[in-house]
């Protein structure tokens, strides 16, 4: 699993596609949808959590997603505290307590059936 990027820290400044600046903790589902709508390259996909298993290292988890209309199966291995953005809910991780502790980012528990925001390239299907 990759080390955790700095932009999940509470207070990080995020630039939306229209140039607007928001703090990471203030992002809403619509911000991602609207940003993708004006992006020429990126498209939002809905990725449903199908399985969550433990990974190779103690804090790692393997999350299996069903991605997009084609329901492509994609597995990612991340640290348990890595947050995903769930549609209509916001930031969620497998270890929300650790996410909150490390990033001060308030976080729900990521569960099987949650639908996460993910990206694909436009023109790819």
């Amino acid at each position: 699993p990759v080390s955790l990027p700095p932009f999940f820290m509470r207070g990080s400044i995020i630039q939306l596609a229209d140039g607007e600046l928001k703090r990471v903790e203030d992002l809403k589902t619509e911000d991602f949808i609207q940003s993708a709508e004006i992006s020429s390259e990126l498209k939002i996909d809905s990725s449903t959590v199908e399985r969550i298993d433990s990974g190779q290292t103690p804090n790692a988890v393997v999350i299996q997603f069903s991605v997009g209309e084609l329901k492509a199966q994609v597995c990612v291995e991340v640290l348990g505290e890595y947050p995903f953005f769930v549609f209509g809910q916001g930031w969620s991780s497998c270890c929300p307590d650790r996410t909150t502790q490390l990033f001060e980012l308030s976080c729900a528990k990521l569960c099987v059936g949650d639908v996460c925001v993910s990206l694909t390239l436009r023109g790819m299907r």
């Binding site: 400044i13 995020i14 911000d31 991602f32 990725s47 953005f85 694909t120 299907r125």
Partner: peptide
């Protein structure tokens, strides 16, 4: 203060290319 692009925050999950 660093500014991060919105698309860094969500994973790029590419489905296997079909047709």
């Amino acid at each position: 203060v660093p500014v991060f692009p919105w698309h860094s925050l969500v994973p790029f999950l590419a489905p296997t290319q079909s047709d």
